[in-house]
């Protein structure tokens, strides 16, 4: 009976298997890199908005408090975006004719809402309550970044599960006095570890925060 396989068949099989393994590893590396890249997480990417609203100008230069516009931040499940009426409380007096603000005036006149592109958002399968994070003293800057340095709004953190868990596993170092949550610059707090080192530890006890419970699946996936 003749040979079914040639002498080189074994070599070719080994080469193919090796190639397959290499391709699999490469695919995993590429997928992993993509998932962590800013292209997928949208960190630092600016969305096209109907009005080029500058947080840098309103927060950094004018010093308007976050809660003036995001009024439900401390009470609602979502911080919410300001109504057209809120914009017009000031812009009916200042910059009344600015072409940049034409969509806002059109929205007030027609009664049709402005259509903003959402920047900070979570997938639908995540339960998130904005108010509880603020009432326990997680400052705005922790998740939203230095918005006072953003001429156009972009995502500051990847909003991945890993990132959420980093804080839920050990919330103490992230806690600040709830009265000052809208403060953007906490460098002097971080520079004085002696004074503030115990604050987070104490407040987790005061609030009854148990990290073991915060990492249970159904805390966020209900």
């Amino acid at each position: 009976m003749a040979q079914i396989f040639t002498a080189s068949a074994d070599t070719r099989l080994r080469a193919a298997a090796l190639l397959g393994v290499v391709a699999l590893v490469m695919a995993l590396v590429v997928l992993g890199g993509y998932a962590d890249s800013s292209y997928a997480t949208l960190v630092g990417w600016v969305e096209h908005q109907p009005v080029p609203f500058s947080h840098q100008h309103h927060v950094g230069e004018l010093g308007i408090d976050c809660r003036y516009c995001h009024a439900a931040a401390e009470t609602g499940a979502h911080a919410g975006l300001p109504s057209t009426f809120t914009c017009m409380t000031c812009h009916s007096q200042v910059w009344t004719g600015a072409p940049m603000l034409a969509p806002v005036r059109a929205s007030l006149a027609s009664g049709k809402p402005l259509e903003w592109q959402r920047v900070a958002r979570l997938p639908d399968y995540v339960y998130f309550d904005h108010s509880i994070h603020l009432s326990r003293g997680v400052p705005c800057v922790t998740c939203h970044g230095r918005v006072d340095r953003m001429p156009l709004m972009s995502r500051a953190q990847p909003f991945q599960m890993q990132w959420c868990l980093d804080c839920h596993r050990n919330p103490a170092p992230h806690l600040r006095p709830p009265a000052e949550i809208t403060r953007m610059d906490w460098s002097n707090w971080d520079e004085e570890p002696g004074i503030h080192a115990v604050y987070g530890e104490l407040m987790t006890k005061v609030y009854g925060i148990e990290p073991a419970k915060l990492t249970q699946c159904n805390i966020c996936h209900r």
């Binding site: 969305e47 009470t75 609602g76 919410g80 109504s83 009426f85 049709k112 592109q117």
Partner: peptide, 18 residues
């Protein structure tokens, strides 16, 4: 992409998600 459409005139005492 997902759009956010805030109110033009918000109802009194409205809290998003409440």
């Amino acid at each position: 992409d997902e759009k956010a459409l805030p109110y033009v005139r918000e109802p009194e005492g409205f809290a998003d998600g409440a």
